[in-house]
Amino acid sequence: MPGYKGHITGSVVAGALVLVGLVQIGLYVIDPEQVVSLFVICVLGALFPDIDTDSKGKRIFYSAMLIMSLSLIYLEKFKWAAYLGVLAMLPGVSAHRGWTHTWWAMLLVPMPMLILPYYIYGQPFPLLLPYYVAFVVGYFSHLMLDGEF
């Protein structure tokens, strides 16, 4: 099983393959700022399954969560900071290689990225879908590299 570096590399490769494929078939037009965000989310998706252990990946993941939470608080988006905090705590209530290493968690964990903005702010799903897909692709790369499929 790869460590955090292997999972980061795997997520970047998987994300790049999906991005190139979507561009080739005309489903995505490259926006450089969004691409950076999508790759960060893809990497976070790849690190998420192992944040229930004491690891470098866990420290990277939670450092990113802290930066995002502080940014949301600074921007006075307290609801979003609270949602992010609750979601970040979920893996702490399970054993390693428990629910975080399942195909259904890969699909359900990032679901709040679609549901919350839609119901709270009325954001349309097509605007939110790239972020959901990026997290799922990263998560998938982690499970694939761990031999879960």
Rank of each mutant, 00 (worst) to 15 (best):
I51R: 08
D54M: 06
I60K: 02
L108Y: 03
P32M: 07
P112Q: 05
D146Y: 04
R59K: 15
P126W: 02
K56W: 06
G147A: 01
G85M: 01
I67Q: 04
F135D: 00
L143Y: 08
Y83H: 11
P91T: 05
I25C: 15
V40E: 08
S69R: 07
L47G: 02
S141N: 04
L127A: 03
A14Q: 12
V35N: 03
W104M: 03
D54T: 09
V35P: 13
P124V: 10
G98R: 06
Y118K: 11
L38G: 09
L19Q: 10
H7L: 10
S55M: 01
P2L: 11
F78T: 14
M1V: 08
Y131V: 00
T102G: 08
G45R: 00
A46F: 08
A88I: 02
D31N: 15
G3D: 12
G15Y: 09
M89G: 08
V12T: 12
V137I: 15
C42K: 05
I120L: 11
D52C: 09
M144D: 00
Y139D: 04
L19V: 13
H7I: 07
I51V: 07
I60S: 00
I73M: 13
G85K: 07
L127G: 01
L145D: 00
Y121T: 00
P49S: 07
K58Y: 01
S71Y: 11
L72M: 13
P112A: 09
M113G: 02
G122W: 07
A16K: 01
V86G: 09
D146E: 12
S37I: 06
R97T: 09
L17P: 05
L66D: 03
Y132I: 06
V137G: 03
V109A: 12
G57S: 07
H96D: 06
I115H: 02
Q24E: 14
Y28W: 15
L44P: 01
L19M: 11
A134R: 04
W103Y: 10
L114F: 06
F149T: 00
Q24A: 15
D146L: 00
I30F: 07
G26V: 12
G85Q: 06
A46L: 06
V93N: 01
V13M: 11
W103I: 07
G57C: 02
V86D: 02
V23C: 14
M89F: 12
L107K: 02
C42M: 07
L75G: 09
Y132V: 11
H142Q: 00
L129R: 03
A16L: 15
V109L: 02
L84R: 02
L114Y: 08
L143T: 04
H142R: 04
Q34E: 14
W80K: 04
L107E: 01
E148T: 04
S63D: 04
G45E: 14
L47Q: 02
A16M: 13
A88K: 05
P117D: 02
Q123A: 14
P32R: 03
L107N: 03
P91Y: 07
V43Y: 03
W80I: 07
F39D: 05
F61E: 05
L128M: 06
V23R: 15
L145N: 01
L22C: 15
M89P: 03
G15Q: 06
P112F: 00
V29Q: 15
L70I: 13
